[in-house]
Design a protein around this nucleic acid. Structure first.
Length: 420
RNA sequence: GCCGAGGUGGCCCAGACCGGUAAGGCGCAAGCCUGGAAAGCUUGUGUCCGCAAGGACUCGUGAGUUCAAAUCUCACCCUCGGCGCCA
């Protein structure tokens, strides 16, 4: 959520931002209208309450007729306050709803653009692999080796769910452990959190209300299946105030993620876009002064995984139109999948400035006596598992149909070198 | 799910039976004092409206009663303990 004070002071800045992001400007105008009316009424209500407070202090000291008169007068005042406050509450709820729909302001270093094509490649690593045979796609490899089972996944749940079997399941587990170990060594504290969260949590990180249709909701309990570990990990510090020396806080978490993917279509065959997937996440709470440098560090921590796996990848700086709602700056890491010859987004690393912190009320005290300020939050995937698996299977496939296990994963697979 | 005890400002804790507008302590900071410090004393310490003066709000949440609610009424949430159920 943006600082409402900033919106009031500089609405044109917000208007320009909304244009750059391809958002409607209506939300802004609606905010200004509701907020103006709200401020007018809260002022009126405050005045009446003051009157009431003054009278309340006098009443116990009064006697007889005068007392009766004042009480009678206050009865009407109380009635009026009640009316105004009802309207105030209504306006406030509407205004807050509107503010929750205004996205974060992109950093000045973010290129202006409409969509994916506006993104720029800022660096790349490794060489796209050339084969002297026709490389298979991951789902062909998975089915041929009987390590990914789409049919039975659909049987027990539905389309978009799959089962990993044998060395496929072991490879997944090896990847998770490898990632967590690397991030542990980089200084991240591992946490394992609930995968089901309440509404306050999904508001806190910005998925609600904009993305609510993309999340699974448990109606009976009014709880959500988390769409990314970012939600529970960031929100575990909701309503907290850190001392300055506690920052930065760095967490890594392995957790399943759930997405309804309402717009899922036929060409998303395989495990590139699924409803449930594992992910190792990185989350940081930092001092606002250096949060964009912290983003560079976070990104390189995520890149370390791809480098360790020796997978060719490139780094994209997302443009204003392609960036997530809560983000001020985002890098995507795309691994190359030679089977389908496509770049796969395996990680998205973002700096949210104080946008999430304001929604979740996560603060720190800059100096012991000073007023608390909002922290800045960052997060990035320490890689999404299915797509990493795709990249591994397609890059490490051999002509005889087997798959070589990346060196760094072998210790997690009892030294095994080949799946086949 | 049942029974009990709780939820008060950054933290701790009083007030509740009997309604009158949050006491006290800790921490931290500033000032005074001091050669310097400690101690001591004074002041400050959350949110919102306002350029400011000032004002409003804040006792888990929401509603109600009342001129007035931390305090009375109702509903709900959370924490801790015990019981039950259970992998």
């Amino acid at each position: 959520m943006l600082d409402v004070d900033l919106i009031r002071r500089d609405p044109e800045l917000i208007r320009a931002m909304l244009r750059n992001r391809n958002y409607s400007e209506e939300t802004l105008d609606e905010f200004l209208r509701l907020d103006g009316e709200w401020r007018r009424l809260i002022d009126e209500s405050n005045g009446l309450k003051h009157k009431r407070n003054v009278a309340s202090e006098r009443i116990p000291k009064l006697k007889g007729e005068e007392k009766k008169e004042v009480i009678a007068e206050m009865r009407t005042v109380a009635e009026r306050i009640k009316q105004i406050d009802a309207t105030v509450a209504e306006l406030e709820a509407m205004r807050d709803e509107v503010v929750l729909n205004i996205p974060n302001i992109p950093d000045a270093s973010v290129p202006v653009g409409c969509d994916y094509d506006g993104n720029s490649v800022v660096s790349s690593f490794g060489k796209v692999r050339n084969f002297d045979f026709a490389p298979k796609k991951h789902y062909e490899i998975g089915e041929d080796l009987d390590i990914i089972d789409f049919q039975r996944g659909a049987k027990i749940t539905g389309s978009g769910f799959y089962i990993l079997k044998g060395d496929g399941a072991r490879l997944e587990r090896a990847l998770i452990q490898y990632m967590l170990d690397v991030h542990h060594d980089q200084g991240y504290r591992e946490v394992f959190t609930p995968a089901i969260v309440n509404t306050a949590a999904v508001i806190g990180t910005g998925q609600y209300p904009k993305m609510k249709d993309d999340m699974y909701w448990c109606e009976r309990d009014d709880l959500w299946l988390n769409p990314t570990a970012e939600v529970p990990v960031t929100n575990m510090h909701q309503d907290e105030i850190f001392e300055r020396e506690q920052l930065p806080l760095s967490y890594t978490a392995y957790l399943p993620s759930f997405r309804r993917e309402a717009g899922r279509n036929a060409d998303s065959r395989g495990i590139i876009r699924v409803h449930q997937f594992n992910k190792v996440e990185l989350v940081k709470f930092v001092h606002p002064s250096g949060s964009f440098q912290d983003l560079e560090a976070l990104r390189s921590d995520a890149e370390a995984i791809l480098q360790g796996l020796e997978l060719p990848y490139r780094v994209l700086l997302l443009c204003t139109g392609d960036m997530g709602f809560a983000s001020a700056k985002t890098y995507d890491l795309e691994a190359h999948a030679p089977g389908a010859n496509q770049w796969l987004e395996v990680s998205s690393c973002s700096c949210f400035t104080d946008f999430q912190a304001r929604r979740a009320r996560v603060k720190f005290r800059p100096e012991p006596h000073l007023k608390s300020e909002f922290v800045h939050t960052l997060n990035g995937s320490g890689l999404a598992l299915p797509r990493t698996m795709v990249a591994v299977l397609e890059n490490y496939q051999n002509e005889d149909g087997t798959v070589t296990i990346p060196k760094v994963l072998r210790p997690y697979m009892k030294g095994q070198e080949i799946i086949g």
